[in-house]
């Protein structure tokens, strides 16, 4: 028993080390005073300062945030609608097809999603003249399509756990279906929508592959910028940037998780 638990414990330590030591090294090296990213030269926060002065990074960050906020909002809107349709409209024609289509972006390889969206935008441009240039709008649309799948699943599971007689009771008391949606359904799925928004935001902020496909010249998001910089060699300011992103994303995940936990309460 004792022996086994020591084995289990060492596996646990090894597993966590495997996951977090690389991340930790990025954090540690972000405080490196040296010009070389891999050689320690004393503690410093100068790379954080450099980062703020780098216009390229700042504009990429702003673009990323703009895209993430728009995409998360749109994804929450459409995902919630899809989630409600899936769990409340009973058995409508083509329901299974709809369920499959809603969740397919979650399992589709990103390369394929990116490629197909690129083809869509190129065809659209040839046919209608829009989008004239690929960037903010196209990346937002692309991110919305795959993030809404996650929102739909979260909202649907929340609705599945919710007592349907709440909505019936409201209707029984004289609420028209649309009022019932506003008075009862939406307030009760709000936590799921917030959690979905945060998840969509994080997913959008993280994405490199799809964004690379559907963006054009001048439309570099932060992950794209980092990726292109790394190809020229790792500079220490990338470490600083990575540390900030990690901080930001973990804060987001923590908030989403807390809301999710509160949602579990009956």
């Amino acid at each position: 028993m004792k022996r086994q638990s020591r084995f289990v414990f060492s596996m646990l330590v090894f597993g966590y080390a495997f996951l977090y030591v690389p991340l930790l090294s990025v954090v540690v090296y972000s405080f490196n005073d040296s010009n070389l990213a891999t050689i320690w030269g004393g503690f410093s926060t100068r790379w954080y300062g450099e980062l703020l002065k780098n216009d390229q990074v700042i504009s990429a960050l702003l673009l990323s945030l703009k895209i993430a906020i728009s995409a998360a909002t749109l994804a929450t809107l459409f995902g919630t609608m899809a989630g409600i349709a899936l769990s409340r409209f009973g058995r409508f024609r083509g329901r299974n097809l709809f369920t499959g289509m809603i969740t397919s972006p979650m399992v589709m390889p990103e390369v394929i999603t990116g490629l197909s969206l690129l083809l869509l935008f190129v065809t659209l441009q040839q046919l209608t003249g829009w989008p004239t240039q690929r960037g903010y709008a196209t990346i937002t649309i692309a991110h919305t399509t795959f993030a809404m799948a996650y929102v739909a699943v979260i909202v649907q599971s929340r609705l599945a756990a919710m007592d349907q007689s709440l909505e019936e009771a409201a209707m029984d008391l004289g609420g028209h279906p649309f009022r019932v949606m506003l008075d009862i359904t939406l307030p009760l799925i709000l936590p799921a929508m917030v959690a979905g928004w945060l998840l969509a935001f994080t997913l959008s902020l993280d994405d490199l592959v799809i964004a690379s496909f559907v963006s054009g010249p001048g439309g570099s998001t932060l992950p794209m910028l980092i990726f292109s910089k790394v190809k020229l060699g790792v500079t220490p300011d990338i470490n600083a940037l990575a540390t900030l992103i990690m901080l930001f994303v973990s804060a987001g995940v923590l908030v989403a998780w807390t809301i999710g936990r509160r949602m579990q309460r009956p």
Binding site: D163, S165, E168, A169, H176
Partner: peptide, 27 residues
């Protein structure tokens, strides 16, 4: 249902969890 002069007490009670007792009754 919203036009019938009939009201129902549900088995699960279906009390709206995000409203106070007063808001529930006045709905």
């Amino acid at each position: 249902p919203y036009e019938r002069p009939v009201n129902m007490m549900f088995q699960s009670y279906a009390v709206f969890p995000h409203m106070t007792v007063e808001q529930n009754v006045s709905y």
